Amino acid sequence: MDKKKLAMFAVIGVAFAVMGAWVGVNQKQPEPRTATYLPTPEGKPHKAVDALFATTLNDPAGKPEPLSQYKGQLLVVNFWAPWCAPCVQEMPELSTLAAEHGKAKVIGIGIDSPSNISEFAGKHKIAFPLYTAGMDGTDLARNLGNVSGGLPFTVVIGADGQVKKTYLGRLKFDQFKADLATM
């Protein structure tokens, strides 16, 4: 390659680098979606919680279950997937919590296909209800405060229909149990 072509490629490369840097610096950040789950001034359940309770999801056997059956209870909603290692790692502890903690009802919303959720439920003894949401579960989680879309994501909803606390990533159960004790 001669020096002229090399110089031309260098100039083009620098031009693209400058354009990329300019776009990166001037890119508008998306608005945080946290306002969707903040308590309303009147203390009424917020739209995201209402949307959750208006949802009907299938259990691993394919039976449709309305999530409205959990209204009025302290509810722990765990968004998870069988392919998510931290999700699977925290399942036994969540299962123990569900079996031993009389104050809070625990449910799991799987972000995967019905067949994968059913296969997981068949292999593991889980002491709380599991539901299949597929990719729609991602929207439910985002509306409840999971702006990054990461898993696992756990939401505690009070009996009053307010989101009390959210947790992104594997739960630290000592802290989680202490938080539940105050609700």
Score class of each variant (00 low, 15 high):
residue 4 K to E: 12
residue 8 M to S: 04
residue 9 F to P: 01
residue 13 G to K: 04
residue 15 A to T: 09
residue 15 A to F: 13
residue 16 F to A: 15
residue 22 W to D: 08
residue 23 V to M: 10
residue 24 G to A: 07
residue 26 N to E: 11
residue 26 N to I: 04
residue 28 K to D: 00
residue 29 Q to R: 10
residue 31 E to Q: 13
residue 32 P to F: 01
residue 34 T to Q: 00
residue 35 A to F: 14
residue 39 P to G: 08
residue 41 P to L: 03
residue 41 P to V: 03
residue 43 G to M: 12
residue 43 G to H: 12
residue 44 K to L: 07
residue 44 K to G: 04
residue 45 P to E: 11
residue 45 P to G: 09
residue 46 H to I: 02
residue 47 K to P: 03
residue 48 A to P: 00
residue 51 A to V: 06
residue 52 L to E: 10
residue 57 L to G: 05
residue 60 P to V: 04
residue 63 K to P: 01
residue 64 P to A: 02
residue 65 E to R: 15
residue 66 P to H: 07
residue 66 P to D: 04
residue 67 L to W: 06
residue 67 L to F: 11
residue 69 Q to K: 15
residue 70 Y to M: 07
residue 71 K to V: 10
residue 71 K to G: 05
residue 71 K to M: 13
residue 74 L to P: 12
residue 75 L to H: 09
residue 76 V to A: 01
residue 77 V to A: 06
residue 78 N to D: 13
residue 80 W to C: 12
residue 81 A to Q: 08
residue 82 P to T: 11
residue 83 W to T: 14
residue 85 A to S: 12
residue 86 P to R: 15
residue 87 C to T: 08
residue 89 Q to P: 00
residue 90 E to P: 02
residue 92 P to W: 06
residue 93 E to I: 14
residue 94 L to P: 03
residue 95 S to A: 11
residue 96 T to P: 00
residue 98 A to K: 09
residue 99 A to Y: 02
residue 100 E to I: 00
residue 101 H to Q: 14
residue 103 K to Y: 09
residue 105 K to V: 15
residue 105 K to Q: 08
residue 107 I to Y: 06
residue 109 I to D: 10
residue 109 I to W: 08
residue 110 G to M: 07
residue 112 D to T: 14
residue 114 P to H: 12
residue 117 I to E: 01
residue 122 G to C: 02
residue 124 H to W: 06
residue 124 H to E: 15
residue 124 H to T: 11
residue 124 H to K: 15
residue 125 K to R: 13
residue 125 K to F: 01
residue 126 I to L: 03
residue 126 I to E: 08
residue 126 I to F: 07
residue 127 A to N: 15
residue 128 F to Y: 15
residue 128 F to H: 14
residue 129 P to N: 15
residue 132 T to E: 15
residue 133 A to F: 08
residue 133 A to T: 04
residue 135 M to P: 01
residue 139 D to R: 06
residue 143 N to E: 11
residue 143 N to A: 11
residue 144 L to G: 04
residue 145 G to W: 02
residue 145 G to S: 08
residue 147 V to A: 13
residue 147 V to H: 05
residue 147 V to G: 11
residue 148 S to Y: 02
residue 149 G to C: 06
residue 149 G to E: 02
residue 155 V to H: 00
residue 159 A to S: 15
residue 161 G to N: 02
residue 163 V to A: 13
residue 164 K to E: 06
residue 169 G to K: 10
residue 170 R to I: 11
residue 172 K to Q: 05
residue 172 K to D: 07
residue 174 D to H: 05
residue 175 Q to G: 00
residue 176 F to D: 10
residue 176 F to R: 13
residue 178 A to P: 05
residue 178 A to Q: 14
residue 179 D to V: 10
residue 179 D to K: 00
residue 183 M to I: 15
